[in-house]
Amino acid sequence: MRLALTFIPLLVLFFLVSCEREQRNFRAAPPAARSESLTQSQIQPGQAYTPPQTKNPTEYKAYELSQGKQLYEQYNCSGCHFHGGGGIGPPLMDAKWIYGGDPQNVFQTVIEGRPNGMPSFRGKIPDAQVWQIVAYVRSMSGQVPKDASPGRSDSMNTRSEPEQLVEPTVTKQAGQPPSTVQSK
């Protein structure tokens, strides 16, 4: 009886914790392109203005991130950027962002392409998948929560842990998650 009394609260606690598990949205509703966050310059004539950062909801979910990791290989992103170190394309695991490191910037980079060799994947990858790839790409430089970040690859050890993990800062201006995924 005393044994049961000890175990029942433990069991309850266990289920409570389980309830806190992350929710998977199998039909993710990521933010649509928001032009106000797309700034390629740090110079703003007149008053300085901080563009609102976009929130990419997929970044906080281990499932989405691991999907992104898989898609990163399958769409041949790894063919040019390898496992973050770069080669044909620039590295993704370092702190430099040529065309902006906001999730929205990375999304646009994939969709629009960039002039010096980045192909445009417009119409080739569904938006929801692009957001998963964006989340994974940002995870390479430690821009996503560590507990959601994909673990070490079970393939060839290709990547060391980034030296400093940056906790995400969700800004107030991030706005509401958009209501619909833009369909193609």
Binding site: F82, G84, G85, G86, G87, P90, P91, S160
Partner: peptide, 20 residues
């Protein structure tokens, strides 16, 4: 020499088809 010409990240040994 891609690691210098392309400013590649040395932490990923597979970079530049493994030459990094």
């Amino acid at each position: 020499g891609a690691i210098v010409a392309g400013d590649l990240d040395a932490r990923d040994g597979t970079g530049a088809l493994g030459f990094v």
